[in-house]
Design a protein around this nucleic acid. Sequence first.
DNA 1: TTGTGTGTTAATAGAGCTATTAAATAACGG
DNA 2: CCGTTATTTAATAGCTCTATTAACACACAA
Lengths: 208, 208
Amino acid sequence: MKEAESNMNTEQQIMEVAEELFLSKGFAMTTTTEIARRVGCNQALVHYYFRTKDNLFEKLFEKKFTILTSAISSDSLKNSGLKEKIEAIIVTHLDVIIANPKLPFLIINELTTNPARFENIVSKLREQSLIILENLEKELEIEIKKGTIRNISAFDLLLNILSLNIFMFLAKPLLLGVRNLTPKEFDYFVQKRRQEITQTIWGGISIK
Amino acid sequence: MKEAESNMNTEQQIMEVAEELFLSKGFAMTTTTEIARRVGCNQALVHYYFRTKDNLFEKLFEKKFTILTSAISSDSLKNSGLKEKIEAIIVTHLDVIIANPKLPFLIINELTTNPARFENIVSKLREQSLIILENLEKELEIEIKKGTIRNISAFDLLLNILSLNIFMFLAKPLLLGVRNLTPKEFDYFVQKRRQEITQTIWGGISIK
DNA sequence: TTGTGTGTTAATAGAGCTATTAAATAACGG
DNA sequence: CCGTTATTTAATAGCTCTATTAACACACAA
C-alpha cells in the first residue's frame, strides 16, 4: 500500500479535472477521453483508478452534494434575534454557493435527468432538513405570535432564501449575456446581491 | 407542396416527442433513435424531416425560448398602482412557467453546457429586456422618490421575481424527494406559492 | 539480479449514435 | 393507368465513447 507522490498525483489530477468538467458540462457531456486528455494521461488510467465513469462521478457527486446541504446548518440559529438568525442563514449559505458556483447546476442537472439514481442521497437530505426546519419553525412561531412577522412556514422561508441565493448562479450565462458583464463584474454583482437578498427576505416577512 | 395529414402528422409527432424528451432530458441525453422509437417510425425519418438533431433542437428551442421571454411583457405595467403592476408581472410570468414547467431546466441546461450556440438568441433577449427594464425603472424611481418603496434597481427586482418564480421548478425533483410530495400536491404547493411570492416581493421593497 | 507490485500505455472489442443512401412504398395529378 | 413526387424503410458508413486486456516501464525488496 505504498501510495507515493506521483501516482497519487495523477489519481488526484483525474479527480480534479473530472470535477471541473462534470461541474461545467454535466455528466452526459463529459467523457473519460477528455478527462484523460486534459490530465495528459492515457484514457485507460481513468478506468484503472475509478473503473467506471459512473463510479468516478458518484464519488464526486456525493462529496459535493454534502457541501451544499451542510451549508444550511443549525449554527445560524444560535444568533440572538430572528433577524440575525435569518441573515446568518442567508450569508453562510451564499458564501458556500459563491465558493462552489457551478455546483447548483450540476445538482439540478443530474437530479432532473436521473432522479432515481439519487434516492439515497435525497433521503439523507430529508432527515437533515427536517431538523433545521423544525428549529426554524419554532423560532418563526414565536415571532408570528408576537406579531413582528407575518405568517409564513419555515419551508417557504427557506425556499425563498435558496431561490434568491442560487438562481443567479444557474442563470449566470443568461445574466452575463443580457447585461454584458465580465466575470469580475458578475462577482461584484453577486456581492451586492448579498444585501439585496437579505433586505428582500426580511422585508418580505417583517410586519410594517 | 401538398402537406396532407399523415405526413404532417408524423412530422408533428416527431416534434412533439422531441419536445418531450429534450425538455425532460436535455439535448445530450436525447437521441434521434429514441425519438423515432417513441414515435414508432424509422430513425431516418427524423433526419428526413429535420436533417440534423441540432436543427430539430434549435427549431424547438427558439420557439420555446420566446415563450418564456415574452412572458414578461410590458403589458403588466399598464395596471394602475406599482403594487398592481408588480403583482401582474409575477402572476403572468408564473402562469407561463406553470404551463411550461420543464422549460427553465432546458434553458439553463443548454445555456450552461453550450453558451456559444445561443448568442444570437441571448442578444435578442437583451434588447427585449432593456425595454421592460427601462419602463420598470421609471416606475420605481417615482415611488422611491415618494418614499413608498426602498431604493432598488429594476434589474434586481426582476431577478428577485424570476428567482422566486422559477427556482422551485428547477428544484422540483429535490422538493418532491425532501417533502415526499405527489405531483398533485406539488401543483397545489405551487398555487400557494403564488401568494407567498407576491408577499415576499412587495414586502421586500415597500417601506414600513 | 531477479521477482513482484504499481503505474502507464497501446490496441481494441463492443456498443450506440448521427447522418446518408438507395430502394421500396404510398399518394396523387392528369 | 402511368408517371411523378412524397414518405418510409433497411442498410450501412463513420464516428466516438466506455471498458477491457495485454504488454511495457519502473521502483524497490529480497
